[in-house]
């Protein structure tokens, strides 16, 4: 007998009983779905809250429940109720994790549906800039078509190496043109625009208006200079030769730009970021607890 025999989440797929479990789960799922759809708001809200509590509870309990250590050597059964609970929770954790993957996949379908509804409506009514909607829909359909065509070709001819260009067919060329030659390039082009804004912002905003701003400016300049190999090589070289074999050698070597930059990073930057992240963590935790317990937006 295996540990999976004690958990409803990991039934042996080769056994016929799993089929009845699946049917039962689908029926129950649809029943809950339709009941929720037809339920009045005052019933739906607490039900949604209860499901949130239940789903979140799995992860909370799994985190604090003792981990399974071993099984009875002869029977391979969990040694006691706590061990059984551990096995059950470990399996449940995986299944609940899979639920979120499935929900994310549903969101993709929902996104496509939403795009089609909005842009087809825009085209039908010839609203402002409806031409862009055509471009968007044509782009989406061609990417899906060539992407899926390319995928099915690759799946159907497993012995052909489609990473070699000489083996490409129309669908592979189409996918490569749309994905690598267009989408990826546009993606990179859009992101590179940030460089222009950063430079313009640095010129206009990085000014020594106050003591704090001057300190910030000075530290930023040191870090920027330390990133420049030419500067750091010559600066550090000059400091090293200045230190030579003098009595204050160790003190002087601290003035290497890489040393100053490391000191700034390790002494100021890292603790500051750690503090900020700690604060964010506490905020996230409190928000998670509020959502989990249904305290947000009067979920009860």
């Amino acid at each position: 007998m295996k540990p999976s025999d004690f958990s409803i989440w990991s039934l042996d797929p080769t056994k016929g009983t799993v089929f009845y479990h699946v049917i039962f789960a689908i029926v129950i799922g649809f029943a809950i779905f339709f009941a929720l759809m037809n339920a009045p708001t005052q019933v739906r809200r607490p039900l949604t809250w209860f499901l949130t509590l239940l789903s979140g509870g799995v992860f909370v309990v799994a985190a604090y429940w003792p981990k399974p250590i071993n099984f009875d050597a002869k029977t391979q059964k969990p040694l006691n109720a706590i061990e059984s609970g551990s096995v059950f929770l470990a399996d449940t954790n995986n299944v609940v994790g899979s639920f979120t993957q499935i929900l994310a996949a549903f969101m993709l379908g929902l996104g496509i549906f939403s795009l089609l509804r909005i842009h087809l409506g825009k085209i039908a009514k010839k609203k402002t800039d409806w031409g862009f909607s055509i471009v968007l829909l044509v782009s989406m359909v061609s990417m899906i078509t060539f992407g899926y065509w390319d995928y099915t070709t690759r799946q159907a001819n497993k012995l052909v190496d489609y990473d070699v260009q000489s083996n490409w067919k129309l669908e592979n060329m189409g996918r490569d043109f749309l994905f690598d030659k267009l989408l990826q390039q546009m993606d990179a082009a859009m992101f590179s625009i940030i460089a222009f804004f950063i430079l313009s912002a640095a010129y206009r905003a990085f000014r020594a208006r106050s003591v704090e701003a001057t300190i910030l400016l000075g530290t930023a300049l040191i870090v920027i200079l330390s990133l420049m190999g030419i500067v750091s090589a010559y600066w550090d070289g000059a400091v090293t030769s200045l230190a030579g074999d003098s009595a204050n050698k160790d003190l002087i070597l601290n003035f290497k730009i890489t040393e100053i930059s490391n000191w700034l990073r390790n002494t100021f930057q890292t603790p500051a970021i750690t503090g900020i992240r700690f604060g964010i963590g506490l905020g996230t935790l409190s928000m998670a607890i509020r959502i989990w317990l249904g305290l947000e937006k009067g979920g009860k």
Binding site: A202, R207, R209, I224, L227, I230
Partner: peptide, 23 residues
């Protein structure tokens, strides 16, 4: 690309200096 990064950072430093001198 590393030399390019140098030139971009150099330009940034020069612009920051000009900005401060102007101010």
């Amino acid at each position: 690309y590393y030399p390019t990064l140098h030139f971009a950072l150099l330009l940034m430093i020069v612009l920051i200096i000009i900005g401060n001198v102007e101010m």
